[in-house]
Computed example of a mutant assay.
Amino acid sequence: MVVLTGPVARDEVAGHCDDLHGLLEVTGLGIVVVDVAGLGPPGLWAVELLARLELTARRAGARIRLRNADPALRALLDLVGLRFQLERQAEQGEPAGGVEEAVQTADPAL
């Protein structure tokens, strides 16, 4: 997982892309989860960073999936036409992702 904090200056974007490329070369991952909770208020700098990270991942045969993307960031990405996979967050009262509730087949129907 990659954790981003921001805002990220334009001259730092290439370094983040190089780090991601190195991670993908070493691990061979197909999907890299990128936690964007620490980016702060979204702006065009965040759009550029995420677009370049996705391009870096695609060139390596992978994709990125955003974790903890706030509604303002999702709206900004939609506005500029960028679509990212989003890691589903459990709603209140739902089990965490990957947890399935057991069903008792011997229970009588109600």
Rank of each mutant, 00 (worst) to 15 (best):
L49V: 03
A60Q: 08
R10Y: 12
G97H: 03
C17S: 07
P41E: 13
V2K: 09
I31F: 02
L76A: 07
R52Y: 00
V3W: 01
R65G: 13
L44G: 08
L66Y: 05
A9H: 12
P42Q: 08
R67I: 03
R67C: 07
A69F: 06
A60L: 00
A37K: 14
L49P: 01
R58T: 09
G61W: 11
A109G: 01
R74N: 04
P41N: 07
L24A: 06
W45A: 14
L4V: 02
R58S: 13
V8L: 05
L53D: 04
A37C: 10
V8D: 02
L76P: 01
L53V: 03
V33G: 03
G38N: 07
D35M: 00
E100G: 12
T105A: 11
A57F: 08
L49D: 02
L49F: 03
L29Y: 08
G15C: 04
D107N: 15
A69D: 03
Q104D: 15
D19E: 14
G22I: 01
E54T: 00
R63T: 01
Q89L: 10
V13W: 01
E87N: 11
G30E: 12
V32I: 13
A96H: 10
E48S: 10
G97I: 09
L23P: 00
Q104H: 12
I64H: 08
L53C: 01
V103G: 11
L55N: 06
G15E: 14
E48A: 12
A75K: 06
E54Y: 01
R88K: 15
Q104I: 13
V13Y: 04
E12L: 10
D19M: 06
P108N: 09
L50F: 05
L79P: 00
Q89N: 01
A51T: 15
E91C: 09
G81I: 08
A37I: 04
A14H: 06
I31L: 13
V36I: 08
Q104Y: 10
P95V: 14
L4S: 04
G81R: 15
I31H: 05
V2N: 03
M1R: 12
L77K: 03
A14M: 05
L79E: 07
L77N: 11
E100V: 13
A69C: 11
G93M: 10
A51H: 15
T27G: 02
L23E: 11
V47A: 09
A109K: 01
A51Y: 11
L49S: 06
R59Q: 13
R59E: 14
A60W: 04
D70T: 02
D70L: 10
G15F: 07
T56A: 12
L39F: 07
R59L: 13
L110D: 11
L24G: 03
V80N: 00
L110P: 15
